[in-house]
Amino acid sequence: MPDVFTNIALQHYLIVGALMFAIGMIGFMCRRNLIVMFLCSELMLQGVAINFIAFGAFWGKLSGQAFVIFILAIAAAEAALALAIIVLLFRQKHTVDSQAFRELRG
């Protein structure tokens, strides 16, 4: 394997993680499509997960990886719930625009 694939330092992972988190955050605040907003929140989660993994590998500890397994499991459960909610919302109004559900404020 060429060197560039093998010599990846901690900060590279951190940069990727930070970028993913930032992209997710900006997307969540700027987009109004519920599915896209949901994807953005996933992106933020995975950005955090990359940080965990990177620090775990950097310190040679398993706890970072263990945490990510929890994140993955919870993200999977959350995806199932969120998508089901979106489907139900869509059935109500035939749109997934977040503004359309303002009356949910109760």
């Binding site: 969540f28 605040m29 109004r32 977040s98 503004q99 303002r102 009356e103 949910l104 404020r105 109760g106």
Partner: peptide
């Protein structure tokens, strides 16, 4: 709290959280 802070704009909530 319902009538004081709940406006129903998802993005608004996100911004206030941030």
């Amino acid at each position: 709290l319902k009538f004081s802070t709940q406006r129903g704009y998802l993005q608004g909530y996100a911004v206030s959280m941030l």
